[in-house]
Design a protein around this nucleic acid. Structure first.
Lengths: 215, 215, 215, 215
DNA sequence: CATGAATGAGGGTTCATTCAT
DNA sequence: GATGAATGAACCCTCATTCAT
């Protein structure tokens, strides 16, 4: 064991962190290419070229094209949900403000960033990668809906909301965000919509429907 | 002479309706395969096998794989929208009932049929077929949103609705249908959701938010 | 036997001569297409379309694409050689005039007609159809060279020619015609050459070389 | 550092000369196959097999079947013409000897080598590759005829030749070489002709026709 | 570790030939 | 006989993966 380590450390031209950095470079390049072409049409030649490495090098970091795709998606999901889980369920603020905070987060941390593209890519390819759909469901969907349900239940419990529709179907609360995501990707260029205003209007309607004493 | 003319003018070996039927068989088979594998991974061998014809036969009906895909999508969109345009804008019934009729139609004519899969396929591949995305936008999205906007505006005009949010962002009214579509395709098998109840709840919330005198 | 004949004669819509006429239509169409595309690139669809028949009909007249090509070439060669054999070896005129008559025939009956294209097609495809090359050699080359050799030998015998080079290598006498054929097909469009003057000059040179008392 | 640089700057895995050698192997193999089958019927599988490489490897050296064909032809033409341009127009020797040198060169460097096959292949396929016909015309025909014309004009100028027929139609001087080329390819196997004697006889005749004082 | 040349299975497309009408 | 829809073998080209350097 020691001997082996020494053998490896004799020329540690690449430390573990350097290796991680290069892997990240590859994942970034892969995201670009996969987004542009989709999984099946993406060529590893292009990924390698964009990452600035030789094609064979990819296989030193990832065992196959499919694994590259999966690593890419896994690295891009989950993180933000954890952040929301930390910040949003603040019992000191109203359910409405919690929802608004959640949407602000969605707009700034997802819809306005590359993560939006990762999610779109995932939606596009999910039916071809059922296992990945399950991971996404478990790591993002379930946790996201749990947060929403928590907000809704607390809203009902403290009398802020009249009814529990969102607790029962939290999907209804983020449905417009899904529309925003797809619209941006597919139609925005020839039929632009003010996404921010749309989401704001959604919250307005939702509050009208839910709040006992609409502000 | 007459006899010869008949010989030359005789009905085509395969009548037009027979040709259409076979084309439909091919389109059906193609939908199955494209849904299962996505456009790029779908093999025309499989399409032909499922349609029960030889591979070369496909090219008697469609000039290329891409054209097959486009024909498939085009054949599956547009029709229902026309039906809705005919039925829904009935001035004799309330805006709420018009919306409910629209959602009933969505559930029974889209979400409950193969058209759901065509739409999902389109969403999956839209970025690879920008022209098709435009066709879909023009033939379905624009017309669908126009119907919704019409309902909303009439609801406001006749005093049934308090405000015009849906007229401004009709996307908000059908957003849950999009969730339903994707959920069904991606997660329903391991996390079933009562789609009908969800959409019903959406309508309930929407009416609470919009109606001047909620029933 | 009689019965069969009667059966056939009951509706002899197509007599033998009609059949021959249709075959000729097909061969003409095939020549056009083969000339335009070469054998391998010619499509029977195009041959059928140009002949005004259905593709399957071709197979009622010819058993395969290769057979069509061979029938075409066979039908287009040989004929003229027979004509020359009849006309040229006129013992009453000088060898020079016989040669001139031969070249006039070449210019007007071969180089200036479709036969030129048939010969070119044959040269192009001969290495792929060795049997056809043999037929051409036997039916055209051998007979043509025999005519030339006959002229040359008579010229020597009657003292008109000094030597027997052309009797030994009659190919030398028609070599410029081959140049004319290929030049016309390949280079004439961007580097035009006065073919008639070239052949005339060839004869002039040849007479200078051969004749005892150049005129 | 130096070591690393060497690692990055090391000679290409395959040196340029190795690459050229392999390309030549492929071109040689392609010539065999194209000659045997013609362009359209040649299969890249066979080219690869004969070259001893995998099919995909061909595409590392040439972008398409057509480009392979064109590379093959281009690599085989032009070179010898340059050599002749250097050697033949020697003002110290007679026009006759220049012509004889030219024919010797033709026999040993073209007719007796693979270049003969390349020319034949070009003639066979020229109508399918009009651009290539132009290249050949420009790089070979024009230059070759210019050499002949130069010899002829000098022959006239110095009084060696009586007349200028060859200066006007230099094609007449090499026409027998074309016959030799085609005869060798098409008929030689069942009707052998002494090509060397034929060309020698051609020169004899030509000198008789042209020279003021035949030797 | 890194490279990139080489591999070869795979798939879209064509088209000569067949055959039911 | 004539038709033309159907067939399916064949072939060019791509690209994920391997491996000698």
């Amino acid at each position: 064991m020691t001997a082996r380590r020494q053998a490896k450390r004799r020329a540690p031209a690449r430390s573990e962190s350097e290796r991680q950095a290069k892997l990240q470079t590859i994942l970034d390049a892969a995201l670009d290419i996969f987004l542009e072409k989709g999984f099946a049409d993406a060529r590893l030649d292009d990924v390698a070229a964009r990452a600035g490495v030789a094609k064979g090098t990819l296989y030193l970091y990832v065992p196959s094209k499919q694994a590259l795709f999966e690593a890419l998606v896994r690295s891009g999901i989950g993180g933000p949900v954890g952040a929301i889980e930390q910040k949003v369920p603040d019992p000191d603020i109203s359910a409405e403000d919690q929802l608004r905070a959640l949407f602000l987060f969605l707009r700034t941390e997802i819809l306005g960033t590359r993560r939006r593209d990762i999610v779109r890519l995932l939606l596009m390819e999910a039916s071809r990668f059922p296992e990945l759909a399950e991971v996404y469901h478990r790591e993002v969907i379930v946790r996201g809906l749990r947060i929403l349900r928590g907000i809704a239940e607390r809203g009902v419990a403290r009398g802020e909301f009249r009814s529990d529709e969102i607790a029962r179907f939290p999907q209804l609360a983020i449905a417009p965000a899904l529309v925003a995501l797809l619209w941006t990707s597919l139609f925005q260029r020839f039929d632009p919509v003010d996404i921010e205003a749309m989401l704001e209007t959604h919250l307005t309607l939702l509050m009208k429907a839910l709040k006992r004493h609409p502000s």
